[in-house]
């Protein structure tokens, strides 16, 4: 946790949506909001381990909201993270079938305005399934798609870094990898239906 300067909401959002210094932005989220989010879980019958799980998922859902342009800073990051965290914690409690705990939270928090994140949670479920298919691709494919889509490296940079003869070969290989992944998704009816629902086609 080397960085001591506290970033503004705007700086954090710019870093995430511009894919620059994204790890620094995530660190800022942890330094700025972990305590508040953890406190919420602890006050609502959760343990420190529960808080760690819920907050990890909260941050991921938040990143997806920014990535999909559904959060552009209309309200503060604090408010949005709080809402997501609360939703996730309620979902976790629901899974544990602990209606007592759930009711306690509802009575404590009924006046809080919380952003609806059900769509994002549905998307995250779809991502998890695609990720399991992604894991089945060969190592080269995984690396290539990661470098292009996450690290934002150009075809030329990937060719140089990974030892491909030229950028055209990288382009072709990347397409084949992408196609292989798409074919696997197409071949999995349950997954495809889930993704179509998340995208609003199935309703």
């Amino acid at each position: 946790m080397g960085k001591s300067t506290v970033w503004t909401d705007k700086e954090i959002l710019e870093a995430i949506s511009g894919s620059s210094q994204i790890n620094e932005a995530i660190r800022q989220l942890y330094e700025g909001y972990y305590g508040v989010l953890e406190n919420y879980i602890l006050q609502n019958n959760g343990s420190e381990a529960d808080a760690a799980d819920a907050i990890q998922e909260t941050i991921l859902v938040f990143l997806n909201l920014v990535e999909t342009n559904r959060f552009r800073g209309e309200s503060s990051i604090n408010t949005v993270l709080y809402g997501i965290n609360r939703n996730i914690w309620l979902t976790m409690l629901r899974k544990r079938k602990s209606s007592v705990n759930r009711n306690q939270i509802f009575t404590k928090d009924q006046d809080q305005e919380v952003q609806d994140i059900s769509k994002t949670l549905e998307e995250v479920e779809g991502y998890q399934l695609i990720m399991s298919l992604f894991d089945k691709l060969g190592k080269k494919c995984r690396q290539l798609l990661h470098l292009f889509y996450y690290e934002n490296l150009s075809m030329k940079e990937i060719a140089a870094q990974e030892g491909y003869t030229n950028d055209q070969i990288v382009r072709n290989t990347k397409f084949k990898c992408m196609k292989e992944l798409m074919d696997q998704i197409e071949g999995n009816k349950n997954l495809k239906d889930l993704v179509r629902n998340a995208l609003g086609y199935g309703k």
């Binding site: 941050i59 991921l60 997806n64 998307e123 779809g126 798609l145 179509r196 995208l199």
Partner: peptide
């Protein structure tokens, strides 16, 4: 629809990397 499915898949690839980063940063933070 095909284009949306591809875009969703690309976001899933990014999400995987986010997940790995978040996990690591949380571990360091704690």
């Amino acid at each position: 629809e095909r284009l949306d499915l591809m875009q969703f898949t690309i976001r899933a690839i990014k999400f995987k990397a986010y997940k790995s980063s978040v996990k690591e940063i949380q571990h360091d933070f704690l």
